[in-house]
Structures are given as C-alpha cells and as structure tokens.
Design a protein around this nucleic acid. Structure first.
Lengths: 222, 222
DNA sequence: GGGATACAGATTGTATACAAAAAATGAGTG
DNA sequence: CACTCATTTTTTGTATACAATCTGTATCCC
C-alpha cells in the first residue's frame, strides 16, 4: 500500500525500525510537538501499518527519552524543560570533553584529514545560509571527532544526547550572528587536535558547548 | 483533588515493564548468558504472559545494548567483550568524576549525613562478609552521591552504566583482599566531599574506578 | 560418499481480536 | 444551574492468529 515505507527491498528493515526512525525524525524536527499525544491507531493508519510495529517503536523512543509514557494513557512527545536541557547539556559537556581528550590520543592521520575537510565543508555551508545544510555539516564534523575515539559506547551516548537538542540547536543555527563564532570555535578544536593538546582540546570543546547552552537558553526565553 | 487516587493507581505496572526488569536482571546477574538466544514463545511460557509484552521488553533491552538483534532470527544476550567493558568504564569514569564534582557544589548537609551513615554501613557490611549485602551497600553509597547532583539525566545514565558491570563487580566484591582498599577509597571520597574539594573528589573517584577496572580485567583473564 | 534440493518444523514479523481501563457524554436530581 | 452517576466511546494492554522465512534434515542424484 504505502511503498514509501518499503523503499529499498535490498536491505530488509523490520517495520518497527522504519517506524522508529520516522517518528524520531518527526519529533526531532519538531513535526510532532512536545506534549502531543502519540495515538497508536492514528499513527498506524497514517503510516499504513498495524499497531504492533508502532508500539515497538514507541518502546524504543521511550527508553531514548523522546517520549513519556503515562500508564494506560499512552505516549506523548517528551516535554523538554529548561532544567531538563541543562541536565542534558551538563552530561553532554563532560562526554564531549572526554571525546576530545581521547581523540587527541587516538585520532588517525586519515581521520584528521577528514576532519579538516569537514571544517572547510562547514564553512562553505555557512556561506549557503541553508540552515539544514549547516546543521548537517556541523553534525558530521562532530561525528568524526566522536568516532575517532573508537569507543562505541561513547559514540552511542553522545549521539543520543545530541539528538535530544536537535530541535533547539536547529533554531540556533538559523541565527547568522553566531556563524562566525561557530567557525572560530571549530578552528580552535581542530588545531588543538592537530597539536594533540588535550588541555586545549578540552577547553575548546567546553567553551563550544557553553556557548551552545547560552544560545539555546537565550532562545528558550521566547 | 484526585491525586490520592492517582497515587494508588501508580502501583500498576504494565507486563512489558515487569518482563523488562526481569530479563534485565537475569542478564545482569548472568542467569542468561551472553550469546544465549531469547526465544519469544519460550520466554512467554516461562513468564506466563503472551509474546507481546516479551517483544516490547526486548525492544528496550535492544536499545540499552543488553541484547543484540539479528533480523528474522531474534534476540540474543549481548556478547560482552573486554573492549566493550573498557568502553563502558571509560565513559563511566567521566560521568562519576562529573558526579563527584557536581556533588561538591550541590550536596546538602542532610545528604552528607546520609553519606556518612552509608559509609559506616558499608564497613559493617564488609564485616559480615556477605557479598550480596556488601554489593548493595556499595550501590547505595554511590547512589547518594549521584543523586546529590540533582541532575536526573546524569542519574539515569550512571545507573545504566553501573548496571552493565554488575556481574563482574559482584565477583570482584567477593574477593576479601579488596575490602580494606574499598573502605579507604570511600573514606577518601567522603572527606573530599566534606571539604567540598572538587579536585580531590575527582581524583578519589577516578582512582576508585581505575582500581575497579583493574580488578574486573584481572578477573576476566580467567 | 558428497553435495544439492525439497520438505517440515520452528521462529520471527505483522495484523487483528478481545479485555480493561480511562475519558467523554448525557440524563437525572438536588 | 451545578453536580453526580451511569453509559458510551475511545484508547491502551494483552493475547492470539496468520504470514514470511530461516534452519535443519532427509532424500535423491551424481
């Protein structure tokens, strides 16, 4: 019926995973708004599947913290409070700093090259003024650093934490006044990694997150 | 108004959550061994429920990294490798250090008292030589510190990470030769928090985890 | 004997049916 | 008019049914 869901038959994906990714995307992009109820039959009809895959997807979203379960009332998109965001950012800062420190020790020359390219690519995307592209370039850049630690658990957790802030960070990136600062901060991180200077890397990443926090909090006051 | 009614209703737990907790416990305690297949009908019969709650529980365990999914073959208990444990410990160390630092700023006098009591209780439990009790006392003690940060996300993540090592830590605690060292380390952490000395606290917790890592790795070589 | 193949059983993936609870509605009463 | 209580509807929670497919085994052919 809805072949949108079975796009590539080559690689089989259970419907629950398709639904999971779809719903997560919609939440992160703000398509589904905080507090909005996720009703199973409704979603099932909308996506052209039965309730079973929907429910299994919701279980994952629940553990990821993207939806809140109310017993016998179902799921709703998690309400993100200021306190909540601060908590997430506090943890994320610690883990991103850890990433940077580990990366100093472990990043390969190949990955360094990749990182330099990603930095340049980011600057190009800034010039396009296309927020979606800028956001993607930013994510890609940070992914390279995280991946270079080789710590799978860390990669998983940092990704998860980052995702929780996508909707806000996206708005933040829209603001052109921050663009120059972002480029400078990336540059700082890059050169710290090039010198394999853990302390500098930790400081640079720390500041980067602090600024991000300020921007998000500023934006939340509206 | 009907807050009391709701409070009474809170005792209800969906079967999926019961199953989730049960399976997780069995995995963490080593009752279900790494590589073991989790077959839905079998588990459903064993726990006296249908496949539906089992499947939903497995989806959560999957996201938590406790089971691995093989498409169209089902779930199996995640194989824990040395690399895997090192990854978890690396992250955990960063978060426990963060906890200690935040606790220095935020712990209340009441919680400090609680912590002192927990320390004494731990020493008493050591004397009983009952590993289960010692393990519980140890968890309680660390929980107080984590909770005192007031960071809900941090609390959640540290708990999750700790749980991943329960099976190994338990064996570690059985070894009486480590008991004196554990007491000394707890004492060190306690006094650092008493003096609200972030650096000392961070160091003490860092060493604590390092030693734990050594013990677990030692034990894994058998 | 070795290997390909077809069939049977087991197991997951998905849909649907049924039960139980919560929310919404509406009628009756003070 | 407000308020309560019963009834209906909606929605979740759980169980079961059906379909797809993977695995193992036995058989047949070379």
């Amino acid at each position: 019926m809805d072949d949108r869901l079975q796009a590539n038959m080559d690689e089989y994906l259970p419907l629950r995973d398709v639904v999971f990714k779809t719903l997560r995307q919609e939440i992160l992009l703000g398509d589904l708004k905080p507090g909005e109820r996720l009703m199973e039959i409704h979603l099932a009809n909308k996506l052209g599947v039965s309730r079973t895959p929907i429910r299994e997807a919701i279980r994952k979203l629940e553990l990821e913290g993207l939806v809140t379960m109310i017993p016998r009332r179902g799921a709703e998109v998690a309400q993100i409070t200021v306190k909540n965001l601060q908590d997430v950012l506090e943890v994320r800062k610690a883990l991103d700093v850890l990433s940077a420190e580990l990366a100093c020790d472990r990043i390969t020359e190949e990955q360094m090259t990749e990182l330099r390219e990603a930095c340049q690519h980011f600057e190009h995307m800034i010039q396009t003024k296309d927020s979606t592209k800028i956001a993607k370039a930013d994510v890609d850049l940070h992914d390279i650093i995280t991946k270079s630690t080789g710590n799978d658990k860390l990669i998983l957790m940092v990704n998860n934490l980052s995702e929780q802030m996508y909707r806000y960070r996206y708005e933040h990136i829209k603001d052109p006044s921050s663009h120059e600062r972002l480029i400078a901060e990336h540059q700082k991180i890059l050169s710290a990694l090039e010198n394999r200077d853990k302390e500098a890397a930790a400081n640079a990443v720390g500041e980067h997150i602090d600024n991000q926090e300020k921007a998000i909090m500023q934006q939340l006051r509206e």
